[in-house]
Each structure stands twice: as structure tokens, then as C-alpha cells.
Design a protein around this nucleic acid. Structure first.
Lengths: 215, 215
DNA sequence: CTCCCATATGACACCCTTGTCACATGGATA
DNA sequence: TATCCATGTGACAAGGGTGTCATATGGGAG
């Protein structure tokens, strides 16, 4: 019975310590390697369980990854969920700054999670299609509507293509926030990131040109 | 003799047709797969040469990839090299727009090349470190200096961190120019891209805020 | 003709992975 | 103690990749 939970009931029955060891080992492997390069052999060795046991807990490698990736998404949602409902019609740039900040905080506080995430983003393979493509497309339309709304209210220049702007915003959050030349996620520092966000928002908001009113 | 050219002399001696078949097959495989997932078996099959012959032409898979990647870089340089010397002290934003446009033209006219390139960018592995990291770091400092110079001349806001701005510029050229949700490099259209570039430059230049002079 | 060297060839050895399976273990229950 | 069921276990089959090597081929030189 209960044969179609994603991890098996057997896994859920495990004592917490063993579960933690497995999750930990998987997290390590998946944060250091893309899915296809992650090796079950490493995971079972690091977790200190026999290979055979693993297959009592999960269907296969993909199944494990799916489980881990859900953990990552859930964690990220903890950081973002308060911001998204948007009851009081915040300007888009305010929402953007809040999301950007929350996302950065998530990255700093959960570096391994972010690395798992980044591998999927970069992979652009099946896993990407199945696990994040839809979310990003959703974010895109969400942003586009938001931007159009702000344009209608005169908060944003109406000659800007909402799709292009939304794409920039998403790319910035995905890339700029997470890495820097030679600096890995583990070494991020909150104050520095906060400054960077302020800078980025300022550029997006006012542009880089000096003393120049916009068109 | 000549034992340390990258492809062997034997390869260089091959008749053009056979060379082309090999390069073509390699290009196909490397544009559809990251290095580690690219299969020599596919390449030799597509090129119509026996497996053993391949090892008379190249040291190994990595060697072949290196050769192919050089071809890609050379091709890209054909598009960019005129712009980089910068004799007449162009404003940074003008240079940026020119590079962006040239890069886009390269992408549209050589989609397979771009895909090879993107795989490396996304891989963030050894290949990335060896083949593009240095170039990107170089580009970064080049931009930073350029930006500082423009700031000194009052063309750009001096409260902007040149490093952050340079990073944004590089990320935009690497990501925004190349893909879009659901649109692969093969389907890019020049006019559409030109519009997008104009939009992006405009946002960077003046910001997105309506009727708002900058700080 | 035959010798020589560059080149061609594909079966094969080797490596490393994943997922399986027949068997072991152990605690609860009667 | 006997039995049962969940769980543990690691040797192993199968698959799929790369690079090698013993052997074939073929054109030019003597």
C-alpha cells in the first residue's frame, strides 16, 4: 500500500538520521554535478548505505532528484511566498527589488540549494523542461502583465516592450544575483549583495546616462 | 615531425571533402550536446569514417573539441574584431550597442557555432575554465576601464559601480541576446533582434521610469 | 616486382555506470 | 521456538562509452 508516493513508504519510515544522511549526500552530489553527471555510487557511499537499499527508497536516480528538487523549490518558496500575492498594488520595481532581495537571501542562506537549482537552469535539457521551464514562463507572463499595468498607470515608460523588460529582469535575477567572476555562491556576503541589488535597481530605474532626462 | 599541431598532419593532409565531413559531424554533435555528452561514436558515424581513423587525426575527443572551439572563436572574432580597437574614443554605450549588434548578427548567421559556445558557457566545468573564463574576465576588465573613462568624462553617472554595470552588460549579451522562452537560436530574426537590442540599450541608457530625470 | 611508409580499419579490451535479484537479517507475534 | 514480513545487502548482469592495436591497403620509389 502507499506504493505511489514519490519516495517509498520504506524511506519515510526510516529513522531521521538515515534519511538525513541520504538527503545530505544527494544534496552534495546534485549541487556539485548536473543530473546526468551525478553518480548514485557517490551518493550511496557518502550516505553509508548499500546500493541495494537505495532502490528500496527510490525508484531510481531521477526519482531521487525529483524529491530533492522539490525540497529546493519548497525552500525557495518560503522566501518568496509572502511577496507574490501583492495585495496593495506595489509598483513593479518595488516588487522586483523585494523579490531580488529575498532571492539573494535565499541564495546566501542555502548555497547548496542554489547550486542544485543553477545546474538545472544551465542544463536546458529534459530536466529543465520538466522542472523549471513552466515556472519561468509563468513568471514571465506574470511580470509582463504587471509591467503593462504599471505602464497604464504611468509609472513606467510606455515605449518599453514589456516582454523585453520582463526577460531582462528574469535574466538578471537568474544570473547576476548568483555568480560573479571567481566568486561562488558559498562566498556571497549579504551587505555586498544588497549594494549590488541597489545598483542594479538604480540602473534599471534611471539608466546609466548622466543628468539626462528620459525620452 | 610536426607532431604537436593540434590536429595531426594526417588530418591536415586529408582531402577537403573528408575534412569537411568530420568538422560538420563534430559541429553537429557539439552543438547538440555538452562536451561530456557528445559521443565520438555519433561523430564518426555521421562523418562516415571508421573509429580507428579518427584517432589518426586527433588525440582524443577533447582534442577535437578544442579544434572545433577554435573555429568557433575565430568565426566570432571575424564579427567583433573591427569594433574592439576603438580608436576614436566612442562612448561605452555606443560600443556596447555595436558589439551587441555584431554578436547578434554572428548568432543569426552561425546558429550552430553559437550553440557550441552556449554549451560551454553553461557547463561551468573544466572546459569553461580553460576556454572562456579568461576571455570573460578580460572582457570584464576591458569594460570596467571603459566605463570608468566614460564616468570621468561625465558621460555616465559616476555613482554607478563599474563592476556591476560591466557584469550586467556581459550577462545581457550572453543570455538575453541568445535565447528567449521557446525560441531557439535557429529561429532568430534579424529585425526582431535589432528591435530588442534597441529596447535593451534604451533601458540601460535611460532607465524604465517615466518622465523622471536621474539622480 | 617489391619494398616502404602513410593511412585505413573495426573488433576488442577496458572502464564505469545503473538497476536487479537471490539471499540475509531482525524484531514482533503467537 | 517458529513464523512472518519489512528491511538490508552486495555481487552481478547489462549497457554504453572511449581509446587501442594488430592487421589491411595502396601508391610511389628503387
Amino acid at each position: 500500500m502507499g506504493g505511489d508516493t514519490i519516495p517509498t513508504q520504506t524511506f519515510l519510515n526510516l529513522d531521521q538520521d538515515k534519511k538525513d544522511r541520504i538527503i545530505n549526500a544527494a544534496m552534495d552530489e546534485f549541487s556539485n554535478n548536473q543530473f546526468e553527471h551525478a553518480k548514485l555510487s557517490n551518493i550511496v557511499r557518502a550516505a553509508g548505505i548499500p546500493r541495494g537499499s537505495f532502490y528500496q527508497y527510490f525508484e531510481d536516480k531521477y526519482d531521487l532528484f525529483y524529491y530533492i528538487f522539490e525540497l529546493v523549490k519548497d525552500k525557495k518558496m518560503e522566501y518568496l511566498s509572502d511577496l507574490l500575492p501583492n495585495p496593495e498594488d506595489k509598483p513593479f520595481l518595488v516588487l522586483f527589488e523585494e523579490l531580488f532581495t529575498a532571492g539573494t537571501r535565499f541564495a546566501i542562506e542555502n548555497p547548496r540549494f542554489v547550486k542544485v537549482f543553477s545546474h538545472v537552469i544551465d542544463s536546458k535539457g529534459e530536466i529543465y523542461d520538466q522542472m523549471v521551464k513552466t515556472s519561468l514562463e509563468y513568471a514571465n507572463t506574470y511580470y509582463v502583465d504587471y509591467i503593462k499595468n504599471d505602464q497604464a498607470k504611468g509609472r513606467l515608460r510606455s515605449d518599453i516592450d514589456p516582454y523585453v523588460f520582463a526577460k531582462i529582469v528574469i535574466d538578471l535575477t537568474l544570473n547576476v544575483s548568483l555568480d560573479e567572476f571567481g566568486i561562488s555562491v558559498e562566498e556571497l556576503d549579504y551587505d555586498k549583495m544588497k549594494q549590488r541589488i541597489t545598483q542594479i535597481i538604480s540602473i534599471i530605474k534611471h539608466g546609466v546616462t548622466k543628468g539626462d532626462a528620459n525620452v
